[in-house]
Design a protein around this nucleic acid. Structure first.
Length: 534
RNA sequence: GGGCCCGUAGCUCAGUUGGUUAGAGCAGGGAACUCAUAAUUCCUUGGUCCCAGGUUCGAGUCCUGGCGGGCCUACCA
């Protein structure tokens, strides 16, 4: 099943936080997903951006004595800086304070209101004045003597009533469940589907989508009641459509939207599952829009003691006095390519994973420096000395030769299966096996020995030819993950102009006599001494 | 409290519908090789599969109950 196009998103990142490794993970993963589709010639659109409204932003701005927009401009820039350092190639970057977004939120809200999907009702609940928020009955009941769940010792709660606007989410629960069960709206991995179905089974309430401006002003005003702003999710989630031209005035823009929607993959962390698997699709159902094809829900990267690694936590543990491996520090030490490799291979989307400096270093050294990098290096050096730096003839294939050809072709096959499988691990696994196959082949055939003797030198050249050709395909396979290194390798193997995967993917197509470049030292080894010490 | 999920070698993880002596990679130990980024290849050490019961001819795999951890529980995003 070939897809005609591929639209992928990351969550929009909330600007109250500094960018951390979780953001980097989502961004790189989305970039790699997009990259494989682009490699295969599939029209691809990759959207990311920042979420900028809400109470925390308003408070942070107030605390610093600056307008919220100024804070957003500053913080949003941090996210752009991060993805730039990661060499992520997004096609668009949306901000929820963009006019192109807020105008669409307004229209969507008006539409929902007109068709009766939004209603005004009293919200009655426990309010903590100190925390400036409501708590649910259940949360308050769980405390002794019905106190504030955050600070039961200090804060008390009072029963308050407030008028708010609600989205008739419950009305769409059944249709959502049907869509999930029918596979029309997929939530991956499977266990997240279970989680969503379990959530639905508990019964769905309607969703409060407004906030009185007395409490929160930093948001999109409701078109039908200026005393309120739109709260959180309706605003944030709509970015996935506003960015591609949903409800735009311009015909061409709307056509653009229709060409990309429904989105193929929403990438998100497990913490925002409900929002994407329940709020968002019910909202879309209400708007009469097709549902996303699938949600890909990933876990978290945790530091060695299992804590969520965000921002800086001063505490270190286990006698490890080194600073925590934040995304900035990882980039400083390993550079963008190795960092991308680590993030891409860090975990199968689904579970959390623990990591530390050594895990990153070992993986990067094993796969990249010792594996791909060293293989490229030794082959090109041997080619320089044994066949004057020109690609030699393959000669006849024996069993071993067919073996490394197959290994390389399996990597290509994994790439070509990617749009359906989205299985990065299978690509990486195939590449690792390919590198191993070449190493083993070289160990067994010893071309360096054969090259010393005039009579056997042609045979040595053949061995190099087979190995180089296999390596060339592995380089193609890895292009979306480490684009720079892959490009340098391709160049060293005679590649010119833009990469044409369809033309270059076939084993045995490298022209005899092609001038081979110098060993490119693709991935420098990272020594223990490169890791910062406290 | 409720829902969902996780707990397998020092580390990161695989373990398909329960079936032979539980696997990989990395790290550790030994050897070989020497084209290469102290690399590569071969051999090797290492596990009460969280605990306790149960079902079964047979359980890492199913059931029950614990222990430990995570996310959500609808107004923090």
């Amino acid at each position: 099943m070939t897809q005609k196009r591929f639209y992928v998103t990351t969550p929009i990142y909330y600007v109250n936080d500094r960018p951390h490794i979780g953001h980097a993970y989502s961004s790189v993963l989305a970039d790699v997903l997009a990259g494989y589709h682009r490699l295969l010639g599939i029209p691809t659109w990759f959207l990311t951006g920042t979420d900028e409204h809400g109470q925390k932003v308003q408070e942070s701005a107030a605390a610093r004595g600056i307008p919220p927009q100024e804070l957003c401009d500053e913080m949003s820039q941090h996210f752009r800086d991060l993805i730039e350092r990661l060499e992520v190639r997004n096609d668009d970057f949306i901000r929820t304070t963009d006019e192109r977004h807020t105008s669409i939120v307004t229209r969507a809200l008006a539409k929902l209101h007109e068709q009766g999907d939004i209603y005004l009702a009293d919200y009655e609940g426990w309010y903590c004045t100190r925390c400036e928020r409501y708590w649910t009955d259940k949360e308050v009941d769980a405390t002794p003597d019905q106190r504030c769940p955050a600070q039961p010792e200090l804060h008390d709660v009072e029963r308050l009533t407030e008028k708010n606007y609600y989205f008739r989410m419950s009305a769409y629960a059944e249709r959502l469940e049907t869509a999930i069960r029918a596979g029309e709206f997929r939530v991956e991995p499977q266990k997240r589907t279970n989680e969503v179905l379990g959530f639905l089974a508990q019964g769905l309430n309607d969703l409060c989508l407004s906030r009185n401006r007395e409490r929160l002003d930093w948001g999109v005003p409701l078109p039908f009641d200026d005393a309120y702003v739109c709260y959180v999710w309706v605003d944030a989630l709509l970015n996935y459509k506003s960015a591609i031209g949903y409800l735009a005035d311009d015909d061409a823009e709307r056509a653009r939207h229709d060409s990309w929607w429904p989105v193929d993959v929403h990438l998100l962390g497990k913490d925002i599952l409900t929002n994407h698997a329940v709020y968002w699709p019910t909202l879309l159902l209400a708007l009469g829009e097709p549902l996303p094809r699938q949600l890909l829900v990933h876990g978290w990267l945790l530091d060695k003691s299992g804590r969520k690694l965000s921002k800086t936590k001063a505490k270190d543990d286990g006698g490890d006095t080194r600073p925590l491996p934040t995304i900035e520090r990882l980039l400083d030490v390993f550079g963008p390519e190795a960092t991308r490799w680590f993030l891409s291979t860090a975990m199968k989307p689904g579970d959390d994973t623990n990591f530390d400096w050594d895990i990153v270093r070992e993986r990067v050294n094993a796969d990249l420096a010792n594996g791909l990098g060293n293989t490229a290096n030794r082959l090109l050096k041997m080619a320089a000395t044994t066949c004057e730096g020109r690609y030699p003839e393959l000669g006849e294939a024996g069993e071993r030769e067919r073996g490394i050809q197959t290994a390389a072709e399996e990597a290509i096959a994994a790439v070509e299966a990617f749009p359906v499988s989205l299985d990065l691990a299978s690509v990486v696994g195939a590449v690792r096996r390919g590198v191993d196959a070449i190493s083993l082949y070289l160990s067994d055939e010893r071309p360096w020995k054969l090259a010393k003797d005039e009579a056997t030198r042609p045979r040595a050249a053949e061995i190099l030819a087979w190995s180089i050709e296999a390596l060339r395909l592995l380089g193609l396979a890895v292009t979306p993950i480490v684009p720079r290194a892959a490009a340098r390798l391709r160049e060293a193997l005679g590649g010119v102009g833009d990469l044409d995967f369809a033309a270059e993917r076939t084993f045995g197509t490298l022209a005899v006599g092609t001038e081979l470049g110098a060993p490119p030292n693709l991935f420098p080894r990272v020594g223990e001494d490169a890791i910062p010490t406290a």
